[in-house]
Design a protein around this nucleic acid. Structure first.
Lengths: 138, 138
DNA sequence: ATTTGTGCAAATCGTTTGCATCTGA
DNA sequence: TCAGATGCAAACGATTTGCACAAAT
């Protein structure tokens, strides 16, 4: 799973110019298998590895990658935006205490009894978030 | 469904002092049956009805009500926080275009195959969001 | 009289934007 | 060359906070 994909090719295919920072961020993102990042964590990681990128560019890049289908946006927390390098259909655990996301293996959870969708509307996507907390030992 | 509950009593039971603005906001919130509000919309409504409340107090109140179990927080959108006056277990449609929330009648949707929960963790809550968009007539 | 809540304005946080400067094709 | 990317700093929108004042018990 850690065989590095050809980020340059990914970008070209997505119609994105393979620039220094996009390649560098792509390497970071896709070399590590499944990963849930925020703009901040990615920026941090980039800086740590001496990849000079501005936070603004990290935001731009994350959104461009998402539009291109290379990332998936996950909404769990309201205050921060998380991006998931796993773009296949799957759901999430959210560890409320650690504010961390974990994938739920695909196919484990399924929905039953999908309700009537209002006229003229279609389902864009179904998200399931299982919120976890430490067992309270009262 | 529109028989006004005794907000004063609700507040007392919740250990919240029944102040002018809490009562007024409670009346607004609970008189109208199921409702999905943001701090802004509630504040707006209050002002329209000549209830003098500051936005800060609306935020405080919404959070206190939530802690007290009178409201439920719904996370669908990342940028705004929605509160649901329906505190029973149920799931949501999210109309992406209108940025609006609708309840999915309880019991219609159910989850199958709940996955192993990591050691020492318990499920606090399971949220299902069915994202809808207008049918694209391409 | 005490305690708790409220309003305001300033502060904070995550995110976006405008614009001058670079860079890849 | 030159459209498209980047960096910076300023702008932004939602939410929170500090503190003086007001209202419940």
């Amino acid at each position: 799973m850690t065989n590095k994909p050809d980020v340059r090719a990914l970008l070209r295919r997505a119609g994105l110019r393979p620039t220094r920072q996009r390649i560098a961020l792509g390497d970071l993102l896709f070399a590590t298998g499944d990963w849930h990042v925020t703009a901040e964590t990615l920026h941090e990681q980039a800086i740590i590895r001496s990849i000079p990128v501005s936070l603004a560019t990290v935001y731009n890049t994350l959104h461009q990658f998402t539009e291109a289908g290379l990332l998936k946006e996950v909404v769990v927390d309201g205050s921060k935006t998380y991006f998931d390098t796993n773009t296949t259909s799957h759901h999430h655990f959210y560890l409320e205490d650690q504010r961390a996301i974990m994938d739920i293996p695909a196919g484990q959870v399924s929905i039953q009894g999908m309700p009537e969708v209002p006229e003229g509307m279609e389902i864009a996507r179904v998200d399931v978030v299982v919120r976890l907390r430490a067992v309270r030992t009262n």
